[in-house]
Amino acid sequence: MQFQDSRMGQAWVIEVGGRVDAAGAALLEAHCQQGLGRGETRLVVDLAGVDFMASAGLRALLSLAKKVKPKGKLVISGARGPVKEIFDLAGFTTILPICDTLEQAAGLVM
């Protein structure tokens, strides 16, 4: 699993690559947690490079969104293929903001 961090304005952008299975979800949560520890409150998690997501990944994203919520926001972008399918199956769009592109997500997170 790979993480590429960057900034878009005040947003902390994490471009994720690989599989978000149980092991990947733990890594994703730990990586984002480091940012929260530094005081990041506006997170864009870009999943364009993710080709698989299991329920552990859904739980990790929910848990991160809850942690960020008091002071900021978490927006997801770039979900496609099987990742988008599992988001649709779980009705994720009704509980977390999900954008098609990184730029849209960076705008929404502010």
Binding site: A22, A23, S55, P82
Partner: peptide, 18 residues
Amino acid sequence: LCLLNRVDVDAKQMKVVD
């Protein structure tokens, strides 16, 4: 078991991961 990261589930199947 899922929350303890012993099994994982996706849209099609379930498997033991730990």
